[in-house]
Design a protein around this nucleic acid. Structure first.
Ligand SMILES: [Zn+2]
Ligand SMILES: [Zn+2]
Ligand SMILES: [Zn+2]
Ligand SMILES: [Zn+2]
Lengths: 160, 160
DNA sequence: ATGGTGATTGTTACAATATAACATATCATG
DNA sequence: CATGATATGTTATATTGTAACAATCACCAT
């Protein structure tokens, strides 16, 4: 994801792919699950569960914490979203077509989260795990800092 | 850390180094902070804040959540402990002498957390961040799975 | 269509994690 | 001792996440 882009494409692609994968897998993309996925995809920020709860209430008056957490559990099991461990928050997955591990770049300034496959990092990590004789089940690689756009803005402010 | 080791060495080293670094830095390793650090070092498991709270109460009857979280904040600022983001928990740092980024291997079976420097992983990650033009402020790399000892045990159980 | 079964959602209650705000006490130092 | 900075006490509350059980819905076989 670059800073400026046609975000409605992001949303449409994510929802279409999710819908298609659910059909293939024989699982249900119910209204609640689809609405939560849409809310997560409103932008590229990490979203908090209780923010989702507030934002889904106009659509689902009966929504409670469990409503959201169940939908999030489902979307995670299906690989449609990732949990950002260091923020207790969630983002939409940018590549539903390929099984993958991801590097998350989390901008402190604009709050965007960029997902990268970072194959060379994953290879180095796989080697390190072999060295350690550690059998991995799941991996979380998260970096906090400033994205390209925000660090440029910051530098411009300094020199101004 | 290997599975079987003289853990009192781990504790002594950690406390001695912390004490020495606090003197050098002109900061105070108060009773509360030292006790929290000792409690964290009781083993190599990740420790929860409220577990620490219960366990410090015999020593600090007035302890409240803020007591623990302040001590944890201090110990983190000084680099004496790491936060395990994916567990909302804390572990003692195994190398107080060197500034470093760490890979955390978290065993689901025995709950031990192994800290590794994983220099090659960090190098690959640094390159990836340059590619992404992302300015990193902090990094969290955490892997959940089975440690060497526990995966062996598991295999033995299977074949038995 | 009907009934059974598993999946999904509703609902209530609560557990677990973390911070804010302000008062009090302690420490280092001149 | 007086002072300001650091550390702790205290109360209250915010945030994040689950447990448990009831009700409903989707799907399939009769
Ligand atoms: Zn987009
Ligand atoms: Zn940014
Ligand atoms: Zn040890
Ligand atoms: Zn283990």
């Amino acid at each position: 994801m670059t800073h400026i882009h046609n975000h409605s494409n992001c949303i449409q692609t994510a929802l279409n792919n999710a819908s298609q994968l659910c059909s293939q897998r024989g699982v249900q993309l119910t209204d609640i699950r689809k609405q939560v996925l849409e809310l997560i995809w409103e932008n590229h920020h990490a979203v908090k569960a209780y923010d989702l709860l507030e934002r889904i209430k106009p659509l689902q008056a009966a929504a409670k914490p469990a409503t959201i957490y169940r939908a999030l559990d489902f979307l995670r099991e299906q690989g449609f979203i990732h949990r950002v461990e260091s923020l207790n928050a969630f983002i939409g997955c940018c590549d539903l077509k390929t099984a993958h591990e991801q590097l998350l770049l989390i901008c402190k300034q604009c709050n965007d989260v960029e997902e990268r496959h970072a194959d060379l990092v994953m290879q180095a990590l796989a080697q390190e795990l072999r060295n350690a004789k550690f059998v991995a089940h799941s991996k979380s690689i998260e970096v906090h800092g400033l994205c390209e756009n925000c660090s440029q803005t910051f530098n411009e402010e300094i020199s101004a």
